[in-house]
Design a binder for these strands. Sequence first.
DNA 1: CCAAAGCAAGAGCAGTGCTCTCTAATGTGG
DNA 2: CCACATTAGAGAGCACTGCTCTTGCTTTGG
Lengths: 235, 235
Amino acid sequence: MNAPRPNAPQGARARARIEVTAAIKDEARRQLAAEGAAKLSLRAVARELGMVSSALYRYFPSRDELLTALIIDAYDSLGAAAEAADAKAAGAVPAERWVAVCEAVRGWALAHPHEYALIYGSPVPGYSAPETTIPSAARVGLLLIGIVRDAYQRNGVARTPLPAELKPEAQRMAAALAPDLPPEAIASMIAAWAQLYGLVGFELFGQFNKVVEDREAFFRHAAARLAHEVGLVFS
Amino acid sequence: MNAPRPNAPQGARARARIEVTAAIKDEARRQLAAEGAAKLSLRAVARELGMVSSALYRYFPSRDELLTALIIDAYDSLGAAAEAADAKAAGAVPAERWVAVCEAVRGWALAHPHEYALIYGSPVPGYSAPETTIPSAARVGLLLIGIVRDAYQRNGVARTPLPAELKPEAQRMAAALAPDLPPEAIASMIAAWAQLYGLVGFELFGQFNKVVEDREAFFRHAAARLAHEVGLVFS
DNA sequence: CCAAAGCAAGAGCAGTGCTCTCTAATGTGG
DNA sequence: CCACATTAGAGAGCACTGCTCTTGCTTTGG
């Protein structure tokens, strides 16, 4: 008699499937956080879940597919953290929002080092991220573009002139990413975006050992300089 | 009668040892370049060399030790490439030497992606680089400091004032790395150093796919902006 | 109600890092 | 010059990995 409720799609089996899939990802994420991507073992995940390793292949066709799922989750987690930080700084001037987002990225990276390494470190060998990851991967970049856009619509942004050889490329990038913004701003914003991850990566991967001690202050200043480089002003 | 020549240290056995050690590293480097660090297999190296895997442990006590040797070599190779680029630009102004070194780093990274990933990507899981790597790892950084020093001794460098919270740290860094240079220059130089690797890493690890097309021009401009940020001027 | 599809389990293959034991070649001191 | 000690290599073996295939069992939809 009682028909399946709409939030119970396709009966108990399908529900079990999403639950098991989630459990696998959770356990995999635990191992990832504990030991790093290369030591993530399908067999160990299955063992911990009380199932046999071959059963796991019903849910993820290969180890790489599992990693892809974790990569997307990591991008989304980082993106959400960055967006939350931006929302919290909603009232501030764009330059301060920029710094807030940079600090959120750094904070997330320090809290999830192995997941950060998974998405921004060396790509897992022989593995190249599929198209599926693109939307999640783009979130932080889009957020930064949004901040620059807000600044531009308020007061405009300071423009550093581009060399002739870069003008066509900058115009192309602007047309593709933010046609309403000046190419100079887009070009410097993309450079700053990449440089942000240089700062975070160096701290995370130990390159700052015995070099930078007060990393929090160092990073805050560097992020502020990046904002300045993009043309944002602290009012 | 004929005593062992001085360039044949400790007889034939020791000589064979260095040769075999070198052969192992060479083959390992080949596999590293072909497949990446995680797929580097001791057994495959041994197989290729016509020896049995256990024999390899006479030369490297573990896979990690082999990787460490490769890491040091990679750092040295990169450092040599950077130094060569600097030497070639010896006559130019410091800002141009800076850009030349940056481009050399990028060029080396594009030519040796897996080795670059080995040293600047995520550290190999569970592995932390031992002290032995430090001197080789420092070469590019020291080179950049040298360029800033030359600029400072010629015309001085443009100084961007530091926020109060960063002053002590900047003074500490300057005292440790280059007591003869102003703290502002050292602080911005270290940030630029890290940011350089953000630019290279993003390009190498595919983050610029569908975003930046003319990467050469983009990078050159970004490197020039870094030089400017450090206080170097293109005269 | 019954065939079809989904699922878990087990065995098995080829590969890995690493250890241990044994033999043979190579050095070295008396 | 020879006995002893050191060292290189070989082979077997352990515990692990990703992945495949077959075999039954359970759920599901017509």
